[in-house]
């Protein structure tokens, strides 16, 4: 404690010396900002943090350092709980995806996005359904037809209780068919399961389709607004008459009740970062659409998610065998 107080005091002194004309009360941010990432280091989610960290380091736009802290475990809830329980002083934030909704729906935690101050979205991944290259179902239409003809027989590899589970449930609901779900795990596990045809289909991210194109994985539909330029022949769900648009958003969360000054500062910093060309390129390389989505807009999307997921929960929990 003493050490950190001395450190803080000397930092403040240094700041005043260098700034010359310092305002009487210290402006936010006056110390490094901790960003909690709910996955381990490496991998797609973590890269989002690392790219922004590098950007803020190089441009100095944050006026302080951004410290990335990885806290994997329990489907991201270890980290989201840590964010929620932190002091709302603007020095601890983090981000996660729509799992913030589904974890509550599954009863793992008792809070969702409404327990946080939302700071916006720094890019989103596009999700799609994939099949093996030599699967009997070569199009989304064929897959739905098969599921309609033989209810409960088309097997979907899934990671129970997460968005990759809920999106097929939404499709089922919209198309009036019934899939059979098989718990398989993360993308790297769903991939062999689908390619070796132990299961018929599964949700993958656009980047996974790009990476595994030569390994016999083929997209049949995307849940995006418009078609992807990498896969011009693959339709969107909307075109196929299924009104499901579900992206994997990188949603920034802060503990509720942070000072408005800090909130506005962070939203603005993230918005500016996403307008940077280098950042945009690095996000695109990761298969993430480099758009900034305003806090009000993502709140609406998440409300829709929560409302859509709610009636599907009973079905999602049926997987317990």
């Amino acid at each position: 404690m003493l050490v950190s107080r001395i450190l803080k005091a000397s930092l403040a002194a240094a700041a005043i010396t260098f700034a010359g004309t310092a305002t009487p009360q210290a402006a936010y941010p006056e110390k490094p900002i901790k960003v909690i990432v709910p996955t381990q280091a490496g991998g797609g989610m973590d890269s989002v943090a690392r790219i922004l960290q590098r950007y803020f380091d190089e441009t100095g736009k944050l006026g302080t350092q951004m410290v990335v802290v990885n806290m994997p475990g329990a489907g991201g809830t270890i980290a989201t709980r840590e964010i929620m329980d932190s002091d709302p002083d603007g020095y601890t934030v983090g981000f996660w995806h729509e799992g913030i909704i589904t974890s509550k729906a599954m009863g793992v935690v008792d809070y969702d996005h409404t327990a946080f101050d939302l700071l916006g979205v720094t890019g989103y991944g596009i999700l799609g359904l994939g099949v093996a290259g030599d699967s009997p179902y070569q199009t989304f239409g064929e897959l739905i037809e098969a599921a309609r003809a033989k209810p409960n027989e088309v097997k979907v590899a899934t990671n129970v209780g997460l968005p990759v589970h809920f999106v097929p449930l939404m499709v089922e609901d919209a198309a009036g068919v019934e899939f059979r779900y098989v718990q398989t795990g993360g993308g790297a596990k769903r991939f062999p399961s689908v390619v070796a045809k132990h299961t018929d289909t599964a949700i993958f991210g656009a980047i996974e389709f790009i990476n595994w194109k030569d390994a016999n994985l083929k997209p049949i539909v995307f849940f995006s607004e418009k078609r992807l330029e990498q896969f011009p022949d693959v339709p969107t769900a909307k075109e196929e008459g299924i009104d499901v648009i579900a992206n994997a958003n990188r949603i920034w969360l802060a503990p509720k009740g942070m000072p408005e000054e800090a909130r506005a500062f962070l939203v603005n910093a993230l918005r500016e970062a996403m307008a940077d060309e280098t950042v945009q390129q690095q996000f695109s390389d990761l298969g993430v659409v480099p758009e900034f989505i305003e806090p009000e807009e993502i709140e609406k999307q998440l409300d829709w998610w929560a409302a859509t997921a709610e009636p599907l929960v009973a079905k999602a929990r049926q997987l317990q065998q």
Binding site: T77, G107, V160, G185, A316
Partner: peptide, 10 residues
């Protein structure tokens, strides 16, 4: 103990 991978429950 923990979040069970097979049914998504604690």
């Amino acid at each position: 103990p923990g979040l069970n991978e097979s049914d998504g429950q604690l």
